[in-house]
């Protein structure tokens, strides 16, 4: 069971305080968009063995959403950061690179 630090209220708490929200940084496709793009937005999700970016909500705490950069294989947490960003910030990218030099980068 994971321990995560909520960047909004600063609490490091166990997983039971949080609710998972799936893959982070999805781009929303709306009215008029291409069928394939919309279908991918709805249904296609990354499932990497390794570095992954996720959304979590501090459901039993401050109620705020945030992002987590995590390794799905080892459960290592590289960092947590604001939900109000559409790509991982530089410091998170650097933190991942430092631990996973072979990581191909955020795509």
């Amino acid at each position: 069971m994971l321990m995560l630090k909520c960047p909004n209220c600063g609490v490091t708490a166990e997983e039971t305080e949080f609710a998972p929200g799936g893959e982070a940084h999805l781009k929303r496709y709306t009215a008029g968009s291409e069928d394939q793009a919309f279908s991918d937005y709805l249904f296609a999700r990354k499932n990497p063995r390794g570095v992954h970016f996720e959304r979590w909500r501090h459901a039993f705490g401050c109620g705020k959403w945030f992002h987590v950069a995590r390794c799905t294989a080892t459960l290592e947490v590289f960092g947590t950061y604001s939900a109000q960003t559409s790509t991982p910030p530089d410091n998170i990218i650097a933190a991942v690179k430092a631990k996973r030099p072979d990581w191909e980068g955020f795509k």
């Binding site: 929200g21 929303r28 959304r55 909500r57 459901a59 109620g63 705020k64 959403w65 939900a83 109000q84």
Partner: peptide
């Protein structure tokens, strides 16, 4: 309520 907050915090901030 959670749905509203999710959209406000993660899409239309």
């Amino acid at each position: 309520y959670a749905w509203m907050e999710e959209w406000l915090q993660t899409e239309w901030w």
